[in-house]
Computed example of a mutant assay.
Amino acid sequence: VEYQELEAIDNISTVMQFVLIGFSDLPNLQGSLFTVFSVVYLIILMGNFLIIVIISMEQALQKPMYFFLANFSSLEICYVSVTVPRILFNIETQDRHISLMSCATQMCFFLIFGTTESLLLAVMSYDRYIAICHPLLYPMVMNPSKCTQLAAGSWLGGIPIQVGQTCQIFSMKFCNSYKINHFFCDIPPILKLACGDTTMHELSVYVVVMVVAAFPFILVLTSYSKIIATILRLPTAKGRAKAFSTCSSHLLVVVLFYGSATVTYLRPKSMHSPGTDKLLSLFYTIVTPMFNPLIYSLRNKEVISALRKLFFKAYY
């Protein structure tokens, strides 16, 4: 396979163009994979877009919880659009080349949206904590201004950190290979291609993951430990069931996202294998965003009721 290279001063050949191996090791399944990824992408786009439309049109859903859910659905659309169109392009054209700049851009946006998801999940758990543990204070604490600030902080908070991390990673020289054994430009497979010792870069990745993922995850766990303790003290079984149903969907999304992402980024480089990395990445890049609309809508009576009203208006 042809690729461009630039001779560095120290005579080390530095890769200027990569090849995304992706799923090319499954030549007989290319057509099936294209169909599956296309269908999944459409499901993600339509499911999340439908949630945004329902929340914006239904007066009963004009609450902080659904404001954050609409933000979350918007994020999921952005998040999958960083990776899936590229996967589809590579499978359709069988041209797997990606320039250094395109690779860095894809990684940067993927990390920014990943950080936004982590922060937004923490904000949503805080919203549920105030609603269940301090219901009388809820209207005052989660006022529209506060909600907007929390959402904006989630969207913008990861930009400086992840732009810095992307610049740091792509300031390295890549000479071990030009082949990325992955379906998008993620940190672990890129670090494998770097020349020399990458210990400091790996350490910086751990530090960033602790800040943008582990810390929010601790906040989520803290919120839910207090939520569960409060729910268990509710006098009626019906009240406990309602409170649990409100929180369980969010908790399920949290476990799916943080579980797969943490295992991917906090393992030492020596423990990474292409097959495992691809499988874990599929979970937090595609599978979780696909199930999120189903998890949030099918387990939420208010959303189902609003969906029925929307279809009723459309048909009658």
Rank of each mutant, 00 (worst) to 15 (best):
H201F: 04
H201Y: 14
H201A: 08
E202A: 14
S204R: 05
S204I: 07
S204Y: 01
V205W: 03
V205A: 11
Y206N: 13
Y206E: 01
V207K: 15
V207C: 02
V207W: 08
V207P: 10
V207D: 04
V208Y: 07
V209P: 08
M210S: 05
M210Y: 03
V211A: 10
V211H: 09
V212A: 02
A213M: 03
A213T: 13
F215G: 02
F215S: 00
F215W: 13
F215Q: 05
P216N: 07
P216K: 06
F217W: 10
F217M: 07
I218K: 12
L219M: 11
V220S: 01
L221A: 11
L221N: 02
L221D: 00
L221M: 07
L221G: 06
T222N: 14
T222P: 06
T222S: 11
S223G: 05
S223M: 00
S225Q: 14
S225I: 10
I227F: 12
I227W: 05
I227G: 09
I228L: 14
I228M: 15
A229C: 11
T230L: 00
T230C: 01
L232H: 03
R233S: 12
P235S: 08
P235A: 11
P235H: 04
P235N: 00
T236A: 12
T236V: 11
T236R: 14
T236M: 07
A237R: 14
K238I: 09
K238E: 05
G239S: 07
R240T: 01
R240I: 09
R240C: 03
R240W: 07
R240Y: 11
R240V: 02
R240L: 04
